[in-house]
Amino acid sequence: MDILSDIKQTFKDGSVLTRLIYINLGVFLLVKLVGVFFILANQPFSLTYWLSLPSGLDELIRRPYTLITYMFLHEGFIHILFNLLGLYWFGKLFLYYFEGDKLLSVYLFGGIAGGVLYMISYSIFPVFASVNGLLLGASASVIAILVAVAVYEPNREISLMFIGNVALKYVAGFYVLLSILSISSSNPGGNIAHIGGAVWGWFYIYQLRRGNDIGRGLIKFLNKIPDMFSRKSRMKVTYKQPPRDDYEYNRQKNVQQEEINRILDKIAKSGYESLNKEEKELLFKQGKK
């Protein structure tokens, strides 16, 4: 199997986190290769410009897709390296507590929230009145993931080089405070976007604890996309991640068993006919094991 086939298979079988990393890397390589082509052709064209999020509303109207594309776009190697390291570390922590579809929704909506706050700030604050900025990078999405898992499990400790074990709430608080203080630096737009991502991460967990998964609608829409291109296949796209180790395997088994117990209790109280379609399918699949 050649390299391209290996990458394709890894992307197909990998978790949402793996796919997000691959997409960021793929966009980075594509932009760089296109840039080399146009430089050699001596043509003034920048794909980075067309995929970055503009600060002005008039530009956004002409390029509305940039509210999504900017969060997968990176300018240099150091830029993408640190963002992907953060995405990997905090994404792994997030997936320890939640499913992959929730990671995807936090990544996308965190990036959108960061982009929206960035545009609002450039529209209302006088200091940006004469500035035509461009926003790019996954950092708002990464901070949204970090803050989400820190709000959900604030006292969970992670090991930091040269420092030791530090609770997640302090790590998230440090990044948020650093972003606020760095607005006066050379990258005010990026730091404002970080704050937007952080607010979304907090808001997502706040709503989730109240029983409202505000990213569910997005996942349902993404699940329907394959059906728009193929009438033959009605298979639903899911974003489940296979168990990463024995602890995660046992955690998933416990969650599944709790759901089975809930369904059995429901049958005992209200009868089999009280089950909905999803509950009947889960019970049927469990009976075949």
Results as ranks from 00 to 15, higher is better:
Trp200Ser: 01
Trp202Thr: 04
Trp202Met: 10
Phe203Ile: 08
Phe203His: 08
Tyr204Lys: 00
Tyr204Asn: 00
Gln207Trp: 11
Gln207Gly: 09
Gln207Pro: 05
Gln207Arg: 12
Gln207Glu: 10
Leu208Arg: 02
Arg210Ser: 02
Arg210Met: 03
Arg210Leu: 02
Gly211Trp: 00
Asn212Arg: 09
Asn212Cys: 05
Asp213Lys: 01
Asp213His: 01
Ile214Phe: 03
Gly215Pro: 04
Gly215Asp: 04
Gly215Ser: 05
Gly215Arg: 00
Arg216Gln: 09
Arg216Val: 06
Arg216Cys: 06
Arg216Ala: 12
Arg216Asn: 07
Arg216Tyr: 13
Arg216Trp: 13
Gly217Tyr: 06
Gly217Gln: 05
Gly217Cys: 09
Ile219Asp: 05
Ile219Tyr: 09
Lys220Arg: 15
Phe221Trp: 15
Lys224Met: 11
Lys224Tyr: 15
Ile225Trp: 01
Pro226Asp: 01
Pro226Ser: 01
Asp227Tyr: 15
Asp227Cys: 07
Asp227Ser: 12
Asp227Met: 13
Met228Glu: 07
Met228Thr: 06
Phe229Asp: 02
Ser230Tyr: 02
Ser230Pro: 02
Ser230Ile: 00
Ser230Asp: 06
Arg231Leu: 11
Lys232Asn: 09
Lys232Gly: 13
Lys232Thr: 06
Lys232Asp: 07
Arg234Ile: 08
Arg234His: 12
Arg234Cys: 07
Arg234Met: 09
Arg234Tyr: 11
Met235Glu: 14
Met235Cys: 08
Met235Leu: 14
Lys236Phe: 10
Lys236Glu: 11
Lys236Pro: 04
Lys236Leu: 12
Val237Glu: 05
Val237Trp: 05
Val237Pro: 03
Val237Asp: 04
Tyr239Asn: 13
Tyr239Leu: 15
Lys240Thr: 08
Lys240Val: 08
Lys240Ala: 09
Lys240Asp: 11
Lys240Glu: 12
Gln241Glu: 07
Gln241Val: 04
Gln241Tyr: 08
Gln241Gly: 06
Pro243Asp: 03
Pro243Gly: 06
Arg244Phe: 12
Arg244Pro: 07
Arg244Thr: 11
Asp245Val: 01
Asp245Asn: 12
Asp246Lys: 13
Asp246Asn: 13
Tyr247Glu: 15
Tyr247Met: 15
Tyr247Phe: 15
Tyr247Trp: 15
Tyr247Gln: 13
Glu248Met: 08
Glu248Cys: 04
Glu248Asp: 11
Tyr249Trp: 07
Tyr249Thr: 03
Asn250Met: 10
Arg251Asn: 02
Gln252Ala: 06
Gln252Lys: 11
Gln252Tyr: 09
Gln252Val: 05
Gln252Leu: 14
Asn254Asp: 06
Asn254His: 10
Val255Glu: 14
Gln256Val: 05
Gln256Ile: 06
Gln256Phe: 14
Gln256Leu: 12
Gln257Pro: 03
Glu258Asn: 11
Glu258Cys: 06
Glu258Gln: 13
Glu258Pro: 04
Glu259Leu: 12
Ile260Glu: 02
Ile260Lys: 03
Asn261Ile: 11
Asn261Arg: 07
Arg262Met: 08
Arg262Ile: 05
Ile263Phe: 13
Asp265Asn: 10
Asp265Gln: 10
Asp265Trp: 12
Lys266Asn: 02
